[in-house]
């Protein structure tokens, strides 16, 4: 076979990732099934057999579902409004949604704490509006966690939907109306199906990011709401229980992979219609 000299330029990068990224990952998966006495499923048995850890997995999934649902509910209509905005306005609005993505997650979680404190901005606003009589405890509640998670991951929902919606022909609803469709009917049968690829991209992205979230839940809730990532970090750093941690990592990896593969398959079906 003739060697292509340009093709060889890929080697350093591919080799680097194979050595520093793929090999450690495979080693981690290997160590989840390999104990001191040969093959073992001990990590998985302890993980899936223990009601506490099953609860943690359920809590992570619940958190990811609520985050994804909330982000979709807010982000879907917002993406349409963003796509409708004209010229300069669109750039400004886009920048305002984009900026939070580049601000450190620690800064955002810290700011979220200031918003929700007993003497924070939200209590101050509610007190001054006369809606409450004394400060309400908001920080370290599940509601605060959900709001904080949606806050962090919302741009990942808005931007993919926007990317699809702005390509839609703005005359489509008019065409549907000319043919006698009610606005609701034309949304349901024309706009919604055409926007689905963006929704699938946004939902899979937000879900796979939020199911693995670590910084936001640990900052906003501490040990009160254990997610899979937090258990994993604890297993490695505090308990030194590598078998358990590696098994949890494998479960998390499988979930993230399933979402990515599932979304890709769904995209192909949507594209094929």
């Amino acid at each position: 076979m003739k060697r292509d000299p340009l093709g060889l330029l890929a080697l350093p990068g591919v080799g680097y990732l194979a050595l520093v990224f793929l090999a450690p990952l495979l080693l981690l998966l290997w160590s989840s099934v390999r104990g001191p006495e040969g093959w073992t499923l001990d990590g998985y048995v302890r993980l899936l057999g223990d009601p506490y850890y099953r609860g943690v997995i359920a809590a992570s999934l619940q958190l990811a579902l609520i985050t994804t649902g909330g982000a979709l509910l807010l982000g879907y209509p917002a993406a349409f409004a963003l796509a409708r905005a004209r010229g300069g306005w669109q750039v400004v609005l886009f920048a305002l949604i984009f900026l939070p993505l580049t601000v450190s997650i620690i800064v955002k979680s810290f700011g979220w704490g200031i918003v929700l404190r007993r003497d924070g901005i939200l209590n101050w606003a509610l007190l001054n509006l006369g809606l409450i009589e004394r400060p309400v405890r908001m920080i370290f509640t599940e509601g605060a966690l959900y709001a904080g998670m949606i806050n962090v991951f919302l741009p990942f929902m808005v931007l993919p939907i926007f990317a699809v919606v702005r390509m839609l022909d703005p005359r489509l609803p008019d065409a549907a109306a000319t043919l006698g469709a009610s606005p609701w009917f034309s949304f349901r049968r024309v706009t919604l199906p055409l926007s689905l690829p963006g929704v699938v991209a946004g939902v899979s992205l937000v879900f796979s990011l939020s199911v693995a979230a670590y910084v936001t839940p640990s900052l906003l809730m501490g040990d009160r709401y254990m997610t899979m990532s937090m258990v994993m970090a604890k297993a490695f750093l505090n308990l030194r229980d590598w078998q358990l941690g590696a098994a949890m990592a494998a479960v998390l990896l499988a979930m993230a992979l399933a979402v990515v593969v599932g979304a890709a398959a769904l995209q192909r079906r949507l594209g094929g219609r």
């Binding site: 209509p77 917002a78 939070p100 955002k108 700011g111 200031i114 918003v115 806050n151 919302l154 808005v158």
Partner: peptide, 15 residues
């Protein structure tokens, strides 16, 4: 929804 999203996203950064 867009106004709400932007306000919500910027709030923890601006405070």
């Amino acid at each position: 929804a867009l106004a709400l999203v932007i306000l919500f996203l910027l709030l923890p950064i601006l405070v």
